[in-house]
Design a protein around this nucleic acid. Structure first.
Length: 399
RNA sequence: GGUGGGAUAGUCAAGUGGCCAACGACGGCAGACUGUAAAUCUGCUCCCUAUGGGUUCAGAGGUUCGACUCCUCUUCCCACCA
């Protein structure tokens, strides 16, 4: 029983610090029914969660299955500083109103995966906001500048002469202090969080709260490009609130190689099953597209439902395999006659008439399935099906 | 506080008086190809009913027939010294 739990918990992890402690906590749960706490911090800097976040959430859900109470920590205070992690520049500071708005959509999305009854949502504003200057200095005395500069992204920025705000140094300390205040048993985060996570451990010791959190780090999920980490600002993400069609299409667009990574980090399939699939594909017994479709169906079903996922698949086949027209097309109307380039701009299909002309010149624009070659074309009254490239469609009614 | 260096398109980065709407790379878009929105190859990539016109190189002035390029001030960044 414990072994099975441990196996599930270990799955896909990049690194675990103090695995023995996790084992002890599990033993206490199975034998005495004692619960324990698992902390994970989220920055409400954007309103939407993407699949990169759900890697953590799914891991939290597994912990919940095995007796954990999740401390879903909203970095309402730390968001106002801006965590330097990952980005090599100082992050924008958010207003309180933005943060509140983001938190709301954040938690509803999170509970698609987490068990609400086993989750405590906590805001670090509650305790960090009340710290005095003296408290802060006591906290800061736990860390030397040299040690702080060990942190990968700080040292990189320091070496390449990029700005580091002093406030950014406070971020790991404050995150670590969260673990002291919450007396967390385990904290999980991405590998990029290692320094901050370890800080929690160190501070728990310094503040003498009689425990040190175990740390579990998940790999960072690569975005659709397969190179950079999934992030909203890079535009290579699959959002939790994406439509079923988008979600399905985006999963199918990843490379065959990246697909296995997504399987490991996102699928509910067992590792053995995945390994089997992988060898079947290698031996050309199964078509990689089929496998990828199954993954896309699984993920789409998780955030929508089986029916929506199936529809998305059919829609995808229709548009891409058979290059037919999608069934759901945005409709626009305008007064005619209208110049084709202007019309494309009107329908949000092109950013400028210049771009529209270029695309027409290259044969990328179709009206009612026919290529347009005249960039000066005027559309008289009537209804048209406009298409730019392979995937941008719109219906336009000219009156 | 002092001294010196820097700011160029979505990003990185060339350009040191006219040949500059500005090399190149990445990204993005389109075309071909494909099981795919992957890979590869090709073209495009400031705006404008356009063989032409307009607005750009941190900001404001100035010199000049002409400025991304020279001068002055301002803002921000970096280094060294204190």
């Amino acid at each position: 029983m414990i072994e099975e739990a441990l196996r599930e918990i270990n799955r896909g992890c990049a690194e675990i610090i103090d695995n023995e402690r996790i084992e002890k906590l599990l033993k206490a749960y199975f034998q005495e029914g004692k619960t324990y706490t698992v902390k994970a911090g989220f920055d409400p800097t954007a309103p939407d969660l993407h699949l990169g976040h759900t890697v953590l959430l799914q891991k939290l859900a597994i912990f919940q299955k095995y007796g954990a109470r999740v401390q879903f920590l909203i970095g309402s205070f730390t968001a106002t500083i801006g965590d330097p992690t990952g980005k090599n520049s100082t992050r924008k500071v958010l207003s309180k109103e933005d943060i509140v708005k983001n938190i709301e959509s954040y938690t509803t999305q999170a509970f698609k995966i987490l068990d609400e009854s086993k989750t405590d949502i906590v805001y670090n504003d509650d305790w960090l906001g009340k710290m005095s200057a003296a408290d802060l200095i006591t906290l800061a005395s736990n860390l030397t500048v040299a040690r702080m500069l060990e942190r990968d992204d700080f040292s990189k920025r320091f070496k390449t002469n990029m700005a580091i705000a002093t406030s950014e140094f406070m971020y790991p300390l404050l995150q670590g202090y969260d673990s002291v205040y919450l007396a967390s048993d385990i904290e999980i985060g991405g590998t990029d969080q290692k320094f901050n996570l370890l800080m929690g451990r160190q501070l728990q010791k310094a503040y003498d709260i009689k425990k040190q959190q175990a740390i579990l780090m998940m790999p960072i999920l690569e975005g659709l490009d397969g190179v950079q980490k999934m992030s909203k600002s890079l535009g290579n993400y699959i959002g939790v609130s994406d439509t079923a069609n988008d979600m399905f299409g985006k999963v199918l667009s990843i490379s065959d190689e990246l697909m296995w990574r997504y399987f490991e980090l996102l699928s509910d399939k067992s590792l053995d099953e995945i390994a089997e699939l992988e060898s079947a594909v290698k031996e050309a017994k199964v078509h990689p597209k089929k496998v990828k479709e199954d993954l896309a169906l699984e993920i789409t079903t998780r955030f929508h439902d089986a029916k929506a996922a199936q529809n998305a698949k059919e829609e995808f086949d229709k548009v891409h395999s058979k290059s037919q027209i999608p069934s759901d097309i945005a409709e626009f109307s305008c007064d005619g006659p209208v110049w084709i380039a202007k019309a494309l701009l009107e329908c949000n299909m092109e950013p400028s008439t210049s771009q529209a002309r270029r695309d027409i010149k290259q044969g990328g624009v179709k009206i009612n399935q026919k290529k347009v070659s005249d960039e000066k074309l005027e559309l008289p009254t009537g209804e048209y099906l406009l298409q730019v490239g392979k995937r941008k469609f719109a219906k336009l009614k000219v009156s």
